[in-house]
C-alpha cells in the first residue's frame, strides 16, 4: 500500500512538473492540477495510511481512529486549490483573449514597452 501511494505521488509530481515546464498556459494549468493532487495526497499521507478507521468517534465502543489533522488540512487545501485553479484559468483565459496567444513567456517586444513606461 505504502509503495502504491508513494509511487503515485511521485508519478503525479513528475507529470505535474513536466507539464508546468511547457510553454502554453493550458498544459501549465493541467500540470498545476496534477501537482495539486500530488501535494494533497502527500499531505494526507503524512497522517500515515490506515484503512477502515475513519475519525468518526464511536460512542459505544473503543476503536482505533486514523489521524484527523492532515485530513482537516487537506480538506481546506482541496477547496482552496479550486479557488487557485479558477484564478489561474481566468488569468490564462484573459491573457489569451487579449493577445490571442496562450504562450507563458513574456513577449519579446513587450520588454521594451515596459522599460519605457
Amino acid at each position: 500500500m505504502e509503495l502504491l501511494v508513494a509511487s503515485a505521488v511521485g508519478i503525479l509530481t513528475a507529470a505535474g512538473v513536466y507539464l508546468i515546464l511547457r510553454r502554453r498556459s493550458f498544459p501549465v494549468i493541467l500540470g498545476l492540477s496534477l501537482l495539486t493532487y500530488a501535494v494533497n495526497v502527500f499531505l494526507f499521507a503524512t497522517g500515515r495510511l490506515v484503512t477502515g478507521a475513519p475519525p468518526i468517534l464511536n460512542k459505544y465502543k473503543e476503536v482505533a481512529y486514523t489521524d484527523p489533522l492532515p485530513q482537516a488540512l487537506v480538506l481546506t487545501a482541496i477547496v482552496i486549490s479550486f479557488g487557485m485553479t479558477a484564478v489561474v484559468v481566468m488569468i490564462a483565459l484573459g491573457a489569451y483573449l487579449s493577445s490571442r496567444d496562450d504562450g507563458t513567456a513574456m513577449p519579446v517586444e513587450a520588454d521594451g514597452a515596459e522599460e519605457e513606461a
Binding site: E2, L3, V5, A6, S7, V9, G10, I11, L12, T13, A14, A15, G16, V17, Y18, L21, A38, F42, A45, T46, R48, L49
Partner: peptide
C-alpha cells in the same frame, strides 16, 4: 527535471510512511 522531482517527492513520502 520532472523525474528527479517525482523521485524526490515519492521518496520523501515513502520514507515518512515507513
Amino acid at each position: 527535471i520532472s523525474v528527479v522531482a517525482g523521485l524526490g517527492a515519492g521518496g520523501l513520502i515513502y520514507a515518512l510512511l515507513m
